[in-house]
Write a protein that binds this DNA or RNA. Sequence first.
DNA 1: AAAAATTATGTTATAATATAACACTACTAC
DNA 2: GTAGTAGTGTTATATTATAACATAATTTTT
Lengths: 133, 133
Amino acid sequence: MDSKNKSLSKNQQIVLDFIQRNKKPVKAYSILSSVQKKGINAPPQVYRALDKLIEKGKVHKVESQNSFVACKILNCETRHATIFSICYKCDSASEINDTKLFNYLSEFKDSGGAKFDGYNLEFFGTCNSCKKN
Amino acid sequence: MDSKNKSLSKNQQIVLDFIQRNKKPVKAYSILSSVQKKGINAPPQVYRALDKLIEKGKVHKVESQNSFVACKILNCETRHATIFSICYKCDSASEINDTKLFNYLSEFKDSGGAKFDGYNLEFFGTCNSCKKN
DNA sequence: AAAAATTATGTTATAATATAACACTACTAC
DNA sequence: GTAGTAGTGTTATATTATAACATAATTTTT
Ligand SMILES: [Zn+2]
Ligand SMILES: [Zn+2]
Ligand SMILES: [Zn+2]
Ligand SMILES: [Zn+2]
């Protein structure tokens, strides 16, 4: 069975619940302060949960922000192939689910003709909400 | 005149020289300890130089590594449109200069039909040198 | 079911990355 | 030569992430 279908531990579930309640990506220490009432007391507990959630495809890291966002793609297979659009005004991020782009990147070969194992693509722009304002 | 053609300040030149002497991406604090003999004493001096060098297109940040690498593309226009291949074994990174992929990403439109202002793409795999070993 | 292996937890301390704030200097531009 | 902008030097601190170690829970193997 694929690891992403394994069940979640207590701390993993607590951290995932919090991330999923947020529309925008959240920071590790923001998670920490928000889940202290649930008995998570220290950074390693958060970072360990995050590591596992990322492995299981439930959460992605937005590298340019050092923040974490829940995967909203059903049966996300893109644990190591993520595409985001990020608003530089409000820091919102949404995962792009574009099969054509996904395939284009998955099939991309380096100058030696070898495929890569994964990729992370972050587009930057203004989100629809910020465009209006 | 484009800002990337502006001349470099003393600290910017010192930091760029060091980055260019390294094949692999370098960390900010590694830069700092290496240029202390040149009179750069504190983190803000390094980070300020890095900010400007990035603005000027001389240096790119490898987001997944929090490291910095010199741009090796002549007259790099890709200040906000960077593509890297990163080896997860040895952490080497090289900028991919593929016109087709570059154009594909530059022309990519979100679901609302709007183009983005920039992007950063990081491919992960094993570099040629690590494949042999 | 007992032993072994793996995964998860709790905790303290510390490492690594990055910025705030302030005083001062150098270099344009008009 | 005054005003604006960019750069420097410095101290302190904020933010992000991991090391290390002890213990507990769960799963796998025998
Ligand atoms: Zn996803
Ligand atoms: Zn926005
Ligand atoms: Zn470049
Ligand atoms: Zn390598």
